[in-house]
Design a protein around this nucleic acid. Sequence first.
DNA 1: CTGATTTCCTGCCATTTGGCAAGTAGCCAC
DNA 2: GTGGCTACTTGCCAAATGGCAGGAAATCAG
Lengths: 196, 196
Amino acid sequence: MSSEKLTQFLQSRGIIGAAQAAEIAGQFSSKSLARHDFLLREGRVSDEYFFLDHGLLRAYACNPDGHDVTTAFYSSGQVVFEVSSFFTRVPSQENIQALTDCTGWFITFEQLNALFHARPEFREFGRSVLVQGFATLKSRMLAMITTSATERYEQLLKTTPEVLLHAPLKHVASYLGVTDTSLSRIRAGAKTVAPD
Amino acid sequence: MSSEKLTQFLQSRGIIGAAQAAEIAGQFSSKSLARHDFLLREGRVSDEYFFLDHGLLRAYACNPDGHDVTTAFYSSGQVVFEVSSFFTRVPSQENIQALTDCTGWFITFEQLNALFHARPEFREFGRSVLVQGFATLKSRMLAMITTSATERYEQLLKTTPEVLLHAPLKHVASYLGVTDTSLSRIRAGAKTVAPD
DNA sequence: CTGATTTCCTGCCATTTGGCAAGTAGCCAC
DNA sequence: GTGGCTACTTGCCAAATGGCAGGAAATCAG
């Protein structure tokens, strides 16, 4: 498998040049996941900084009452890991599971730190990844407060339609903060009353 | 003003020792804000990494329709800055305003970077601050999805009651993701029906 | 192929929340 | 003090969402 996408990704923020990107990419190991495989299981420490080349993943947390809540979807071109567990070396409260067969590249926490130490540009790149994740989450939170479930659904449909092709509706529903019943109705066209 | 709280904070994660904490703290400049003053205004780049020694701040974003939405409250002992604007050097979409008179310590982006460069421990500390902010936001998002407005209010009351002493109800309401009308009812004791 | 499971939709109704408006109380500026 | 503004509450009703259950369709395991 070619690591071209990864190399491109490393250059994408204008911090790392082509030559260094290739060198850094060389440190990554390839990894494949079959559908339903786990990248991370609850209770274990997230130790793989995983660049997703192809496929779709879902992160979710389990409520005490048994229901699981989707906390994120990851599509190709993104880095997948549980920030808190990875950097704090604490057991993850989340699972990350493949919704489709996946391929990608990873380095361990140890490797990442060595690279951060050896390559200031990569360190800055890593911070940039973190900051972007932060900004994405903030914007999702704002949308949760200011927009309706219907608008959030339509936004998801517009920005990452591939999620809706591979994730069962209940996973999407908890991600959007509604029940699967409600999401089903939203998809049906928001007819709560006046069915005719 | 003594910088003891700041020095303590720098040591709080077990990464930075007492001597180095004192040296780093020495780089900070003191800053005071009167009630209603702004630490950051929408459209400007967040350039102060501000440790809040005493007081209470609120971050908020303005909707196109005029309503503002509280995105965060900051109480003493926390670092206050807009992550995305600060690190990406992009105009902030948020305002950060003092709810009470505030005192604290800050360094600029430039100073922070110089310190990150010179002191690996402080770099790691800075990452730890970022990661914790990320985790806090994730947990707030989860609460938004899995718990009721009443539960979120009670949680806020339990963990940071000082917010409710100084922030007007509508600010708290948008933070919790409800209208001020609803929050008023929640405070009254959740009697939607059967008033008697 | 076949039975079991999962997914999704939908009807019925309860609950939660919102929108609007009126009214009281408190605060602030002059 | 006085007028005006903001904060908070509350009643009325509408809209959004949830809980539950039944049933059709798709998917999966053997």
